[in-house]
């Protein structure tokens, strides 16, 4: 045995190489993919939107920092998850929202939606949606005061879905406003009332396309979600069966934002492919039911939250096939 000692070598168990993907890289990439939609929103609804976005992000990061300090964890701000939650919350409030409300929503999203469960990876519900639903329940008036496109002086205008609901359920409160004022092109490009981030379908799809190319999200949840909403509203959303305007349903409201960016949240969604398809279908059915027969014109956030609650059950039963076991 020779006695020379070289510089101590590192000994770890295999594997000795790791893929370049990291949690923070994924989070920041999703963040960047959401930016185009925000830019369109600033263009359509004015610079007030930028203030809302910055407030939400700042509040989320500050809350995350404070929670980590209180729970004596190493701060997890740089992993981008809090920033992303803040941004998604901002995208889920109307353009004219007061900043204090946005701040409160972000605080609830991180503190109640995430930190109390144990931080990143442990939360059951999508934090941004927890924040949004909290705001919806607490400030229903502020949360449904929609701003008409290109009207900086905050002229309120109902969203396409509200108009549809009004006609579908026969309440006729909004008589006089007509769905015809929105063409599919307007809906697709985002020239309509709605939450900050949900407006421009084109911008959202651009980002989602990039995420798919990078394989950060797969088609399973978005396609099954949107497909189910489309089929459901086509069957039940018209006068009689099979006459619904499913393109209106797909392009309006928060469906695209929700299906591509919030239902696909890793932490709160199922892990297996079969589970994800089931999750998407469940989301789609609940969204359809809420939109057609529920109390609110929009149901995406509730559907995702409800399915989040079912996720552990889905993960329990939709397990991958064990290698070598009979089918």
């Amino acid at each position: 045995m020779t006695e020379k000692q070289p510089a101590p070598l590192t000994v770890t168990s295999s594997p000795h190489i790791r893929s370049p993907e990291t949690t923070s890289k994924i989070m920041w990439t999703v963040f960047v993919c959401l930016i185009p939609s925000g830019l369109v929103s600033v263009y359509v609804f004015g610079f007030g939107v930028l203030g809302i976005i910055l407030t939400a992000v700042f509040a989320a990061v500050a809350t995350e920092w404070a929670c980590c300090r209180i729970q004596r964890k190493t701060p997890t701000i740089m992993d981008g998850s809090a920033v992303l939650t803040g941004l998604l919350l901002a995208y889920n409030v109307p353009p004219g929202s007061p900043l204090w409300m946005v701040f409160l929503g972000s605080f609830i999203a991180i503190a109640v939606g995430k930190a109390v469960f144990g931080g990143l990876g442990c939360n059951v519900f999508n934090p941004a949606l927890v924040g949004r639903v909290f705001l919806m329940a607490s400030f229903p008036v502020l949360m449904t005061r929609w701003q008409a496109p290109f009207k900086v002086d905050a002229v309120t205008a109902p969203t396409p879905l509200a108009i549809f609901k009004d006609g579908f359920s026969g309440t006729n409160v909004l008589a006089g406003t007509d769905l015809v004022q929105y063409s599919y092109r307007d809906l697709f490009l985002g020239l309509r009332g709605g939450c900050i981030g949900e407006a421009c379908v084109l911008a959202l799809l651009l980002g989602a396309g990039y995420l798919m190319i990078r394989k950060y999200i797969t088609w399973h949840i978005p396609l099954s979600f949107i497909g189910t909403v489309g089929v459901f509203t086509w069957i039940f959303g018209g006068k009689g069966l099979f006459g619904g305007d499913f393109l209106l349903q797909i392009f309006s409201g928060g469906l695209i934002l929700g299906a591509f960016y919030m239902a696909t949240d890793y932490v709160t969604g199922p892990m297996t492919r079969q589970g994800q398809i089931l999750f998407g279908i469940g989301c789609g059915i609940i969204t359809g039911i809420v939109r057609l027969w529920g109390g609110y014109p929009e149901g995406v956030s509730y559907s995702i939250l409800l399915m989040n609650a079912v996720t552990p059950l889905i993960d329990r039963f939709m397990v991958p096939r064990r290698f070598g076991e009979e089918r």
């Binding site: 590192t10 994924i26 997890t76 990143l120 990876g121 890793y266 892990m271």
Partner: peptide, 12 residues
């Protein structure tokens, strides 16, 4: 060099 562990984000 190896990075430290982070919480599982259940990405699947």
């Amino acid at each position: 060099r190896q990075e430290g562990e982070h919480p599982c984000i259940r990405c699947g």
